[in-house]
Design a binder for these strands. Structure first.
Lengths: 212, 212
DNA sequence: AAGTGTGAAAAGTTTCACAGCG
DNA sequence: CGCTGTGAAACTTTTCACACTT
């Protein structure tokens, strides 16, 4: 028996979603230069993909190009933003403010791109506050109540690897739906939660393979 | 005209190479627990993949499992390490020691995994040294001579986005073959250079799409 | 003429299922 | 018997090529 699928957007390839972010960046740049129409060839070159791929990606959620002309920069940017769920500022918490965690807190690159890290949590909040971090740092015991009160859905996880699974379990129960995980471990979560792994050592390892 | 290709390993799927790093991590853990044989089912579960996939990945570079028994942990770990080019400690430089760059320098997660950040470069080295960084920081004018003298092949790039392409051009000419790029830009490099992008805002954006 | 939208082919990857070995 | 190694099937993603619109 086939499930009918009320599939609003299920069949957009995962990789295409990553590319949407890239397109969005490129469109911002065009917008800043007051360009108001762009062809698939031009935008594709800026994004580092093939024109056909770009057209196919955009076609997944409608058709708003003009044949013979191209895509309207402003409208396309808005559509991508909405598709990515970026209409509103997303609050984010950071859990585990050790070496990497506090480094990320001092780096304000998230804010610039529209995400606000509204709080950090650590087993030892005092030590972190002392490190010159401006975001409020709470004890990890306050995690659940904070997530609930502020309706936070996204978390950046930087706890030591041996605690990562236990902490993510707590986050999920508390209502977190997306986790950016910096621990070198494969986290087990239910299908309602999305985990993205960023493993810096692994990225270097990967490069290592390709340099002869 | 086709290039004949002395293809020693060309046909290993790119994704499989990422997984190799994961397997390697899992094997380290097993080794620490004095396990000396592991089945594809067990290792696959730890790595978060299907057993068949693991077997296929390993088969890409030889056959060293014992039927009815499994894989020898020690030997497998060594083979993966060598395949990834990790036999020797890889020196790495970091270019652009601003917010994120100096945060990464203070975070010593690379060293732990066998990569040594031997130097950093910045347009304003004094400012960086003042930030409590222990790695030597040089002026970016010394980039080329340093890369040459120390035969560095890997670079971590954290310069502001508007300088990223110009700096990577210099790196490539100087002999860098692998770049871990933190700038939100698609870098143009020749086929002899591998670029890995880490874009934290993009990762959050991606999560954003999946949370409802 | 220029450039989109898209079926269909090609390429790449994962999963299955089972023969074969220790 | 248990578990690897692997060809073939299934699935996913990319690329091509061209009809069609402005």
């Amino acid at each position: 028996m086939e499930i009918p699928e009320k599939t609003s957007r299920i069949d957009i390839p995962k990789k295409a979603i990553y590319r949407l972010s890239i397109y969005y960046r490129c469109l911002q740049k065009l917008r800043a230069n007051d360009v108001d129409t762009v062809s698939s060839t031009t935008l594709a070159r800026a994004a580092g993909v093939k024109p056909a791929q770009l057209r196919k990606d955009l076609a997944y959620f409608g058709q708003f190009g003009t044949r013979g002309l191209g895509y309207p920069v402003e409208i396309l940017a808005t559509i991508i933003r909405d598709t990515l769920g970026r209409e509103h500022l997303q609050p984010v918490i950071l859990v585990g403010a050790g070496n990497l965690g506090s480094a990320l807190l001092r780096y304000h690159g998230f804010e610039k791109e529209g995400f606000e890290v509204i709080a950090a949590f650590d087993a030892n909040p005092e030590a972190t506050r002392a490190r010159g971090v401006s975001v409020p740092v709470f004890s990890d015991s306050e995690l659940e109540s904070f997530i609930d009160t502020h309706a936070v859905k996204l978390a950046i996880l930087c706890v030591p690897v041996e605690f990562a699974q236990a902490v993510v379990n707590r986050l999920v129960v508390a209502g977190i739906q997306g986790v950016l995980n910096f621990s070198p471990i494969v986290l087990e979560v239910g299908p309602e939660v999305t985990v993205n792994n960023v493993d810096l050592a692994m990225e270097l390892e990967h490069l290592s393979y390709f340099i002869h």
